[in-house]
Design a protein around this nucleic acid. Structure first.
Length: 896
DNA sequence: AGGCAAATACTG
DNA sequence: CAGTAT
DNA sequence: GCCT
């Protein structure tokens, strides 16, 4: 309880404090608060994490037991073969319970009066709960305790207890805690205790803040113990709770006894647990190995490979190859990335050497393009051409390419495989014309000659169409010798890539109006390359009826979304629908539909059916009660498919069921807000209203600091008639030494290494709350206090009479402006498309900017082996140009 | 058959 | 971590 | 779902 009130108090002070001069005193205050706040957040997270873990494990085991019988309304009798199931059936009985009895069933009444400044804190853990809670024990976890209390009020106490309390650490028998987990005890103490003493940061933070952001004094001693403890915690500490969920923690210590201790014979749960433990052990071992490996040098690791794979069969794809891998790590230790690469090569039969031996080496594999220096260095040669012709140089993707093709790829035989670099047989003299990007990059680095570069870029991109004059007149090329040689190869790869990628831009334009034109052409291109696509997207379309049906089907899949592939199915539908919408004429036949890119067999069949019968059988069979309800629930902000399904399974069917907390469900803070303003938030607002709100916010932000750059993103920027939410992007040119992070009118820093004042976002939020523009917060990033990058998500309104709207405000580093603008402007399909193009060209595009030289783990594409370097991001145009995408205004970027 | 965009952050 | 969101 |  102390934590809660303290937290609320702190935050309250942030937001409520009137707008006044930012005196030194106030600043100091803010600073303290801020730090405190961050600390708290960290701590809470840590606790939550532990909690959650326990809960999760329990849930899992239960689920296993239950799942076979799990239907919507659990029949208590049938599933009662073991004790635990009771917990599931419990909620049903409990349902009539009084917990929130007087919860206002009408959504409005709630917080209208004092649009609570800090909804997240106050509303969710609503006063009533706190009040009800007879300050029983000093609970580190309010939630658990609260629910607990509530549960006790409820009828069948036993059942409910089984379902939640075990997770609350306080409720586990004290003995257990003491016996099994002394460290826990200590940690807990450390966690809660100092908080009470807090504000004198420095001292308090010593141990428990270790994880928090402020660059803790680089004390060597302090962090390590804490860290260590943390690491050890899971094994020793995490497992007991599992036991505690059934019996007592002590049991865990002696597994044999545990079987006996629990009257039930080796249940599935037991087995589960055992498996879990085993798994944990395995993971621990794996981690240890990783740890060991990470300490090896490249040489050592290579030498270690045979041993590592001693027991496994190697594939033969790369048999006979001897690789020298060029990495880019200056430190001696190997990175995971490199090790993975080594692993992969070895696994597939390649020999790997750590040092260049012209006699042995057959291929040089560079982890990314353009590592000329490293290559030369590694081979101990002056220029790349001193490497014997027969030794091929490839970039990493070639390896993965070979593996997936199951053969050795060569330049000649696989010209459809574009992303490798073979050393071209061209002599030194015939250098490629260095690409404009490179040039621009360099120039940007040195002098930021914006205008000229942009002009040039535009011109350049115009002239660039078609197959590029490969033997470009050896112009400038005054490029520093450094990365010169391999730059060529890189360039060549780029040329190839572009050839493959950027069809002919000339035809791309008319393509749209050209009606059902060649699909072949479209196939090659990217949506983002098509200028004027937006024109053909009318609100009304001749195929509206078809679109409607398909949309419905899509929604069903979206609601159901059980596995990953459903996600893509939905994307597929969306694409098809977009294509259909774009199509100017009435579709008559399946063939006609099939010609559109994005519309395949399945969809054409469906379209046919719609055309001929006017309906769609599939719709009838697929649509059912569940889908509707899930859709309904998912309309609540912060309720996703999982929760929606859960509720449905528990027997809930309407929003009122949710409001009444039927079946004992609990809402998160955000969900509660989402529920309260269900109608408001599910409505789009007229563009004008978004504009007004934006104006108000912008005004107040500029009041705080006139040098801010502020822009509204999303559908507003695309000039859509209605907007679903308001996205505001803020940054600030740091040229005068100040940033939006370190607050406007404060000195950036004096002696300490971090900013000495509250971030702009935090201040802005305060003001906005004060003026009633923001009414609730959904989440406020820690960064709001100090970081350059921060995100706010909340709810606000134009004035007291209008509906609530979703409002996001984010601040970003100045140099990422372009990337962020592009990213947050969309639309969705445009984004996907341009990112796809980027990646096909060997780049990677994200909200921060355009990166080049990104290498991913072929086995897990989400793992980046090399994050590459920032290539362009200052302006949107810069990125467009780099990707060869014709410039389009925001409102022209509409594809779906 | 395998890719399809991608990364990050907050909450509980 | 899992779920949700952007 | 679609596409290669």
């Amino acid at each position: 309880m102390s934590r809660e009130s303290r937290e609320a108090r702190i935050y309250q002070r942030f937001l409520v404090e009137e707008r006044e001069r930012y005196s030194d005193e106030a600043r100091a205050q803010d600073e303290d608060d801020m730090r405190e706040w961050i600390e708290k957040a960290e701590k809470r997270k840590a606790i939550m994490y532990e909690e959650h873990d326990k809960r999760r494990k329990k849930r899992k085991t239960e689920a296993i037991n239950e799942s076979p019988a799990a239907t919507f309304l659990p029949e208590a009798s049938s599933s009662s073969l073991t004790q635990p199931p009771a917990s599931l059936s419990a909620p049903v009985h409990v349902e009539p319970a009084p917990p929130g009895g007087k919860r206002p069933s009408s959504p409005d009444s709630a917080a209208q009066t004092s649009h609570s400044r800090y909804a997240v804190n106050s509303s969710a853990r609503s006063p009533r709960l706190i009040k009800r809670m007879p300050m029983r024990m000093t609970a580190p976890d309010d939630d658990a305790t609260a629910s607990d209390t509530r549960a006790l009020d409820a009828v069948s106490a036993t059942a409910t207890i089984a379902s939640s309390p075990p997770s609350a650490p306080d409720l586990t028998p004290p003995t257990a805690v003491q016996l099994a987990t002394p460290p826990l005890d200590k940690e807990k103490g450390a966690d809660t205790e100092p908080a009470v003493v807090a504000p004198t940061v420095a001292s308090a933070s010593a141990s428990n803040v270790a994880t928090s952001t402020p660059p803790d004094a680089p004390s060597t001693s302090a962090p390590s113990p804490t860290k260590k403890k943390k690491r050890e915690l899971p094994p020793t500490f995490l497992s007991p709770p599992k036991a505690s969920s059934s019996k007592s923690a002590t049991v865990a210590a002696r597994p044999t006894k545990s079987a006996k201790g629990a009257p039930k014979p080796p249940t599935k749960r037991e087995i589960q647990r055992a498996e879990k433990t085993k798994k944990e052990a395995r993971e621990a071992a794996k981690k240890a190995q990783e740890e060991r490996e990470s300490r090896m040098t490249h040489q050592e690791y290579i030498a270690y490979l045979p041993q590592k794979y001693a027991t496994r069969n190697r594939k033969s794809v790369l048999q006979g190859c001897v690789f020298l891998y060029i990495h880019q790590e200056n430190k001696m230790r190997t990175s995971v990335q490199s090790r993975r690469c080594y692993d992969l090569m070895w696994e597939h039969g390649a020999e790997i050497v750590a040092e260049f031996d012209p006699e042995r080496v057959t291929h040089i594999i560079s982890c990314k393009p353009k590592l000329v220096n490293q290559t030369c260095q590694a081979c101990n040669v002056k220029t790349i051409h001193d490497i014997p012709e027969r030794i091929k140089t490839f970039i990493w993707t070639w390896v993965t390419g070979c593996i997936s093709a199951n053969r050795i790829l060569t330049a000649a035989s696989d010209d459809n495989y574009k992303s490798f670099i073979d050393r071209p047989p061209i002599p030194e003299s015939k250098k490629f014309n260095p690409r404009r990007h490179e040039e621009r990059m360099r120039r940007n680095e040195h002098d930021s000659a914006e205008e000229s570069s942009e002009d040039e870029a535009v011109a350049d991109s115009k002239q660039k169409t078609g197959p590029i004059p490969v033997a470009g007149p050896s112009t400038v090329v005054a490029a520093p010798e450094k990365d010169d040689p391999l730059a060529e190869f890189y360039e060549q790869a780029r040329y190839e890539a572009e050839d493959a990628v950027s069809g002919d831009e000339d035809d791309a334009e008319p393509d749209v109006d050209a009606g059902p034109s060649s699909k072949a052409k479209a196939l090659k291109g990217f949506q983002c390359d098509i200028v004027g696509a937006h024109l053909s997207i009318g609100s009304e379309c001749v195929n509206e009826d078809i679109v409607r049906k398909l949309e419905e089907l899509m929604k069903i899949h979206d609601a159901r979304r059980e596995n990953e592939s459903d996600k893509f199915r939905v994307i597929g539908y969306r694409k098809a629908i977009a294509a259909l919408r774009r199509h100017p004429t009435r579709i008559q036949t399946a063939e006609e539909a099939g010609k559109l890119q994005g519309v395949g067999n399945k969809t054409s069949e469906k379209i046919m059916e719609i055309i001929s019968t006017g309906g769609l059988e599939r719709l009838k069979t697929e649509r059912n009660d569940g889908v509707d309800v899930m859709e309904l629930f998912r309309g609540i902000y912060s309720v996703g498919s999982t929760v929606a399904r859960q509720w449905y399974t528990l027997g809930l069917r309407t929003l009122d069921d949710v409001r009444e907390r039927k079946a004992g469900i609990r809402l998160s803070a955000a969900q509660e807000i989402g529920l309260r303003y269900y109608d408001d938030l599910n409505q789009r607002m007229p563009r004008a209203e978004a504009g007004e709100i934006y104006g108000m916010i912008k005004q107040r932000a500029l009041d705080l600091d006139p040098k801010l750059d502020i822009e509204i993103m999303g559908s507003y920027r695309r000039r859509k008639e209605t907007c679903g939410d308001i996205d505001i992007l803020i940054t600030r040119d740091p040229c005068d030494g100040k940033t939006h992070a370190g607050a406007s009118r404060c000195l950036l820093h004096t002696t300490s290494s971090y900013h000495t004042c509250l971030g702009l976002l935090m201040k802005l939020l305060r003001v906005l709350h004060q003026d009633g523009i923001l009414t609730e917060d959904l989440s406020v990033s820690h960064g709001a206090g100090t970081a350059l990058e921060a995100k706010y998500m909340g709810i606000g309104r134009r004035d007291a009479t209008s509906k609530r709207r979703r409002i996001d405000i984010l601040t970003i580093p100045h140099e990422q402006w372009g990337g962020a603008l592009l990213y947050f402007t969309g639309d969705d399909i445009f984004n996907r498309s341009i990112r796809l193009k980027a990646s096909k060209m060997g780049y990677s595009l994200n909200q921060r900017g355009l990166y080049k030289g990104v290498i991913r783990d072929p086995r897990d594409r989400t793992v980046k082996l090399d994050s590459g370097e920032l290539f362009a991001s200052r302006t949107e145009r810069e990125i467009f140009d780099a990707l060869g995408v014709p410039w389009q205004e925001p409102w022209e970027r509409v594809r779906g």
